[in-house]
């Protein structure tokens, strides 16, 4: 076995089959090569959120947060997708959740995002586990310097003014500290709760 053979030649040299020069017709001899063309693609889609998300979004307009429960395990998912991954089955019950919870983990983002010009870095995005839910979801921690956010910190939803409410998750502007004692977290590997707590 000649172990070094593949590296014997210049690894960046064009493969033999691709190294033959291309002969252009004379008419194209002086033409400037085209390296790229811009071909915009526009396609319109009418998305449907599905049954579970539709319920969730409608409730948002009333400043209510709906989760859905897995019939087999009791876990509560939010935002609901209509399915329990634990059971491979549809969720069995709609559950109204509190608009309070705790920060499960977070990051401090120091780069702007294209679609949220309103968000000025640095800002803190966090997984919020609502009281009554088994899993966390993403939200912004606001009304607090990002450096002061802690894992376990208790937070509550800050809603848009009533007159601006829509059927949208954007109704929650962010999550602010409640000032309550921190949730005690002992297992840093696992997220959320195996058992849903009482809201």
């Amino acid at each position: 076995m000649s172990a070094d053979r593949p590296e014997a030649r210049d690894p960046l040299a064009a493969p033999a089959a691709l190294s033959a020069p291309v002969t252009l017709p004379e008419a194209l001899a002086g033409a400037e090569p085209v390296e790229s063309v811009c071909t915009p693609i526009r396609m319109a889609y009418t998305y449907t959120p599905g049954r579970a998300l539709s319920r969730y979004l409608r409730a948002m307009a009333d400043k209510r947060i709906l989760g859905e429960r897995c019939g087999a395990t009791g876990q509560v998912f939010v935002p609901p997708r209509g399915v329990s991954p634990l059971a491979g089955a549809a969720t069995s019950e709609v559950v109204e959740l509190a608009d309070t919870g705790y920060v499960e983990s977070f990051n401090i983002t120091r780069v702007p995002i294209e679609r949220r010009p309103d968000l000025k870095p640095p800002y803190c995005s966090a997984w919020i586990v609502l009281d009554g839910a088994s899993v966390g979801f993403l939200g912004l921690v606001i009304n607090l310097a990002p450096e002061e956010v802690r894992i376990g910190m208790r937070v509550r939803a800050v809603w848009k003014p009533d007159e601006e409410l829509e059927t949208s998750a954007a109704n929650i502007l962010g999550w602010e500290p409640t000032g309550e004692p921190d949730e005690v977290i002992t297992d840093y590997e696992r997220i959320g709760r195996i058992e849903a707590s009482d809201p």
């Binding site: 959120p49 599905g50 998300l53 539709s54 997708r81 491979g88």
Partner: peptide, 25 residues
């Protein structure tokens, strides 16, 4: 199928296919 997301309409199909031969995931 306008009212349901892909996973919502697939879940019953997945469950029924497996259940029809007495299997689970």
């Amino acid at each position: 199928i306008s009212g349901e997301s892909e996973v919502e309409f697939m879940v019953p199909l997945m469950e029924q296919a497996k259940a029809s031969v007495g299997l689970t995931q």
